[in-house]
Write a protein that binds this DNA or RNA. Structure first.
Length: 1095
RNA sequence: GCCGAAGUGGCGGAAUUGGUAGACGCGCACGACUCAAAAUCGUGUAUCGCAAGAUGUGAGAGUUCGAUUCUCUCCUUCGGCACCA
């Protein structure tokens, strides 16, 4: 008390209040749009203003951005560091329901409290940029963005079953569900079919994934997003269904024999077991349709199992035939069909006069069964749109395709074949295992089950299973110890396209309806789930992949010259005779190199060898000679197959007890693909079975409707009259932009109705409106947007928060967001929701040319949690919440700031300890006391201090840039410790210290700055520069090692070269002791660090 | 199961183009100041050992003159995804 007069006492309450008022009065932190300066946009994830207020964990990120933004200001940047409120959402609404008050009121109160808490910590926010997502002036633009998405087809209505939380009484997005439970309340989510608005985020899946690579974000967040998007590349492959039909194929004008795809189609269909008749028509060069129809009817019987296919003029014949039938056929396929003489070439226009073009379409329609119309988009003979005309008379489905040759004149027309047979499309990432597909599995929701209802023998059993599966919720369906259930669709079989084998079709709930095609091929030998299923239901298991690294390698030669057998045995080969013409050598894969070099020697002695497809198979032929160096490997392979090498491989590894192997490897038992690697087989087999490479994502479209009150109304109007006028548009009319915002009305009851309608539906005066298009009676959409809507674009509004013409001015957006937000800080909990949604919206706005950069947040940092003193998450439930107001009151805002930054690495979680905080308080008080030394004369100048100052200034700058605040503060403490040892501090050094301290402890720095006689705010000062020539001291103490162990220390000066340093070292008494009697083999000198003697 | 991050004193943590492990802070011990206490200041503080010295960064191996840092195998903790074909 005697030493410290009252005025000298560090009174944090007084000082902090004083400077907070000063900053506010002088508008120190006002952001300007001065575009001559470089900009730095520093952003915090804005809080949801809950009733509980902030706890000490919340400000951790805000303190970091505050330090960072102050540092940027001092380095000449124009800084935007705003704050606002994400205030829509369930807690406010639930509070409103309970207390029967408008949530607006609670939100206002909470914001006021939050703001007062933040202001006490001394942040440099420019409050003139404050925003609130529940302000109609703000959500006007949220609605506007929604409308732009609607216009582009990215917002659509859907009736698909969605996740419904029975407790929150609202639909949820996929992202809101964790382990089948509602993320918010932990209730088990159920599937509920209902009308909802959905945003097509999947259109952006590829870009959302790719652009992650260039972001300066924590790897873990990027990885989470990659997992969430879940891209997988695979193949879509069609499996024919084995229903056998009688096909009647009718060719067109002149298109007989080889000029047409029909012979090929006939062969393909016959291969699949169908009966096919393809008659050659009479007078093909001068056709008479009536005559041809009669000809066919005389020759061929039609029944309910017949499929009639007509190509070109053959389609006209088909129509004539159908007119005359007594009973309907199965299916009519018209390929490049026509019903009027509309040929483009003159010769064929004769047809107009050759025959009658009048048809009894009622009769035809009755007899046609299922109708399929195929049109070539590049048809040179008949005009486009003919299929549509036919459809108008016959019904059925039109497919507009690109034929192999115009007018379907290719000799091979796969698309036609596809429409002839019924198929199941599957998605697989392992097309290499296709030969091992022994059954198919459909999801219970698969449409095919309904289509084949009449042909499934056990349809009752199937329907029962499907019904049960649909009732199950996500948890029941996926968890349950993963026990497999399922039912076979009896009477139906699929055909494995690789080998034509019939395989059973099952329905099982382990196949999900909304991923891939909702159907899979099951390869039990190489997939765990299929394996479990096959074991349970006793389905065949066929091994087709062998692990490459453990594979025995096969080696076939015709005969071995003398001595060679011995050579091969030496490298571990076993030799057996093969067939009646050669021998097989088997050897472990790891010996491949040695065997190969023996093979090389054989080659030189006049034998020839080749390697099949890079698999570790070595095959030598004596009689056939193929020189691989002359590019004859293909020929050699063909020869190999001819002499049965591929077959030999099939026999080689037959295992009566197949085992599960899910890895990739070398193909076996896969026909001509045997011996090649999985990687090569995937595209090759896909092509072989006419599948196509396809990409699937796990990401689902964003369910955007909430059946709750407290959210942005979706700006859509439903009009029945418009729906009648234009059925395709379904009467969905967007609210005209001039009528935005659609303001959330006041209601009597905020409680959700539970019926899937929002409480807004009850307000007749609000719901009933005039249709903006036709003026008729219409109704407003009553769903609201999810909480994530407002936060998906808020960083844009901060830039120009009061603009009532646009969401923000173009020029300001260009300046502040030319490369996105520079620094974004928040918690990891937003990895797969806010951060994906915001990227999606930003990319959409980028496509609209609203923003310049394709990504919103260039750099992202995640703050670690602050846990309660019991190491649990701070929560009212545990009673471990610490209110920053208390800490600020008792220890001061600056102490809180230093402590939170010094607790540990920024991204790591740390346990709160009020005891530990005392260190930060002491540090601040030590600096306070240091002020008394300023200007006092020092006895002698300390050159080391100069070095330390320069080093510290450099380090702090780098550390702030890297968010390494804990080490920055440590460096400040080291500097302070050394200054305490000085008798006096020069005013210049003092000013430097205060300036590097200012971002961390702004109140303290301002106070001491003012005391030192400066008038302007310290935050307007420039960051001190360091002298890079003064970073290393002239003298250094280095370690001396003997054989890598530290044995002593010596003092050297920096200019000394190695020999000088060695000289000092060997004269050192302690070192000497370790070198006596030893011979120094080598010395290693690391400049300024250490010297090592190797003895 | 797949992917990612991490494991260092009593505690929070520091140190990476491979170069003195434990900076800085908390705590603790002793001392100074005081009638006394608090505050403050000083000294010490990885482990074993009186010492010389030995050991030591989750475990084990390897590369190297030298490894917390690089390679391999394994263990533990945390996070993401998960019947996703």
């Amino acid at each position: 008390m005697k030493k410290n007069s009252k005025a000298d006492y560090y009174n944090h309450l007084k000082i902090e209040k004083k400077w907070q008022k000063f900053w506010a009065d002088k508008k120190i932190y006002k952001t300007t749009d001065d575009t001559s300066k470089p900009k730095s946009y520093v952003l915090d994830m804005f809080p949801y203003p809950s009733g509980e207020g902030l706890h000490v964990g919340h400000p951790k990120g805000y303190i970091a951005t505050d330090i960072y933004s102050r540092f940027k200001r001092m380095n000449g940047y124009n800084v935007l560091h705003p704050m606002g409120w994400d205030a829509f959402g369930l807690p406010a609404e639930n509070y409103a329901i309970k207390n029967k008050v408008n949530p607006e009121i609670a939100v206002k109160k909470n914001i006021k409290y939050f703001k007062s808490q933040l202001e006490k910590i001394g942040f440099d926010y420019d409050w003139t940029h404050e925003i609130n997502t529940t302000d109609p002036k703000y959500y006007k633009w949220t609605q506007w963005i929604f409308l732009q998405m609607f216009k582009k087809g990215l917002a659509y209505e859907s009736w698909e079953p969605i996740n419904w939380c029975p407790s929150c009484q609202t639909g949820l997005a996929n992202e809101d569900v964790e382990d089948g439970k509602c993320e918010r309340c932990d209730s088990v989510v159920v599937k509920k079919p209902m009308r909802q608005w959905v945003l097509k985020i999947t259109d952006y899946a590829d870009r959302l994934l790719k652009d992650l690579d260039n972001l300066n974000w924590p790897e873990s967040i990027k990885e989470s997003q990659r997992n969430w998007i879940g891209r997988s590349e695979g193949s879509e492959i069609n499996f024919d269904i084995n229903k056998k039909y009688k096909f009647v194929l009718l060719h067109g004008w002149k298109s007989t024999g080889k000029d047409c795809f029909l012979p090929w189609l006939k062969a393909e269909l016959e291969k699949r077991g169908h009966e096919v008749v393809a008659p050659d028509m009479p007078h093909p060069f001068l056709p008479d349709v009536v005559e041809q129809a009669r000809f066919v009817l005389d020759k061929i019987k039609f029944d309910e199992n017949t499929i009639l296919l007509g190509h070109s003029l053959g389609s006209v014949v088909s129509l004539r035939i159908l007119e005359q039938l007594k009973t309907p056929i199965k299916k009519l396929i018209l390929v490049a069909g026509l019903m009027e003489p509309k040929f483009k070439d003159k010769e064929r226009m004769m047809a107009k006069y050759l025959m009658s073009w009048k048809f009894n379409f009622d009769k035809i329609k009755k007899n046609a069964g299922e109708v399929v119309l195929l049109e070539d988009t590049n048809d040179v003979l008949i005009p486009s749109g003919e299929a549509d005309t036919l459809q108008a008379h016959l019904g059925g489905s039109v497919f507009k395709l690109e034929a192999e040759k115009s007018h379907f004149c290719g000799r091979v027309e796969p698309t036609v074949l596809e429409h002839c047979t019924d198929q199941i499309k599957i998605f697989t990432t392992r097309a290499d295992t296709l030969f091992g597909a022994t059954y198919l599995v459909l999801a219970p929701e698969h449409l095919l089950i309904k289509k084949y209802e009449n042909q499934i023998e056990n349809i009752k059993e199937v329907k029962k299973y499907v019904g049960l599966a649909k009732k199950k919720n996500e948890i029941e369906r996926t968890a349950e110890d993963k026990t497999k259930t399922g039912v076979e669709l009896k009477g139906l079989k699929a055909i494995n396209p690789t080998n034509g084998k019939e395989i059973p079709i099952w329905v099982a709930d382990y196949v999900l309806p909304d991923y891939g095609t909702g159907a899979i091929m099951a390869v039990p030998a190489h997939d765990l789930r299929d394996w479990q299923f096959a074991k349970k239901f006793n389905l065949p298991i066929e091994t087709v992949i062998h692990p490459t690294d453990t594979a025995k390698t096969l080696f076939i030669i015709e005969s071995l010259a003398d001595g060679w057998a011995e050579e091969f045995k030496k490298v571990g080969a076993k030799i057996e005779p093969w067939e009646d013409w050669g021998v097989i050598l088997r050897f472990p894969a790891k010996m491949i190199d040695k065997v190969a070099s023996l093979g090389q020697k054989l080659l030189k002695e006049g034998n020839w060898y080749f390697e099949i497809n890079g698999a570790k198979n070595l095959i030598i032929f004596k009689q056939a000679i193929f020189d691989l160096n002359k590019g004859e490997s293909e020929k050699a392979k063909i020869y190999g197959r001819k002499v049965g090498v591929a077959e030999a491989q099939l026999d080689w590894d037959k295992n009566p007890n197949p085992e599960l192997y899910t890895g990739k490897g070398t193909l076996i038992y896969s026909g001509i693909f045997s011996g090649i690697s999985s990687e090569k087989a995937i595209p090759a087999i896909t092509k072989f079975v006419r599948g196509k490479i396809a990409v699937k994502y796990k990401l689902r479209d964003w369910v955007f409707s909430r059946q709750r009150y407290w959210g942005e109304p979706i700006p859509i109007i439903h009009c029945e009259k418009c729906a009648l006028n234009n059925p395709a548009g379904r009467g969905i009319v967007s609210v005209p932009e001039k009528d935005l915002p659609v303001v959330l009305p006041k209601v009597k009851s905020y409680a959700p109705t539970g019926t899937g309608e929002s409480p807004l539906a009850d307000i007749k005066s609000w719901v009933n409106v005039k249709c903006p298009v036709c003026g008729d009676k219409a109704k407003r959409e009553t769903n609201t947007m999810p909480q994530w809507a407002g936060s998906s674009w808020y960083y844009l509004r901060y830039i120009d928060p009061h603009n009532n013409k646009e969401l923000a001015s173009h020029s300001k957006l260009d300046y502040w967001l030319n490369n996105g937000v520079d620094m974004y800080v928040g918690g990891t909990e937003h990895a797969t929701r806010h951060l994906i949604y915001a990227r999606f919206w930003h990319k959409f706005l980028f496509d609209l040319d609203v923003v310049k950069a394709s990504e919103p947040f260039q750099q992202l940092k995640n703050q670690g949690l602050i846990l309660g003193s019991d190491s649990r998450k701070m929560s009212k439930r545990w009673g471990n919440v610490v209110n920053p107001d208390e800490v600020v009151k008792n220890y001061g805002a600056d102490t809180l700031r230093v402590y939170e930054m010094f607790m540990g690495p920024f991204e790591q979680s740390a346990t709160w300890s009020t005891d530990n905080m005392i260190g930060s308080r002491r540090f601040i008080e030590r600096i306070w006391r240091l002020a008394s030394k300023v200007g006092k004369k020092t006895d002698q100048v300390n050159p080391e201090l100069e070095i330390l100052f320069n080093k510290t200034i450099k380090k702090i700058g780098e550390d702030i840039d890297n968010f390494s605040f804990n080490t920055a503060i440590s460096a400040l403490m080291i500097l302070t410790n050394s200054l305490e040892k000085e008798a006096g501090i020069s005013p210049e050094k003092w000013a430097d210290l205060l300036r590097i301290l200012a971002p961390f402890t702004p109140h303290l720095a301002e106070e001491l700055w003012q005391k030192a006689g400066y008038k302007k705010s310290i935050i307007l000062e420039r960051w001190p520069a360091y002298d890079s020539a003064k970073l290393v001291s002239a003298k250094a103490i280095i370690a001396v090692q003997v054989n890598g162990k530290v044995r002593g220390e010596i003092e050297i000066s920096n200019e000394m070269d190695e020999s000088a340093v060695v000289k000092i070292a060997i004269e050192n008494e302690i070192i000497k002791k370790w070198l006596i009697g030893q011979k120094v083999k080598k010395t290693v000198y690391v400049k300024g660090r250490l010297l090592n003697f190797v003895v």
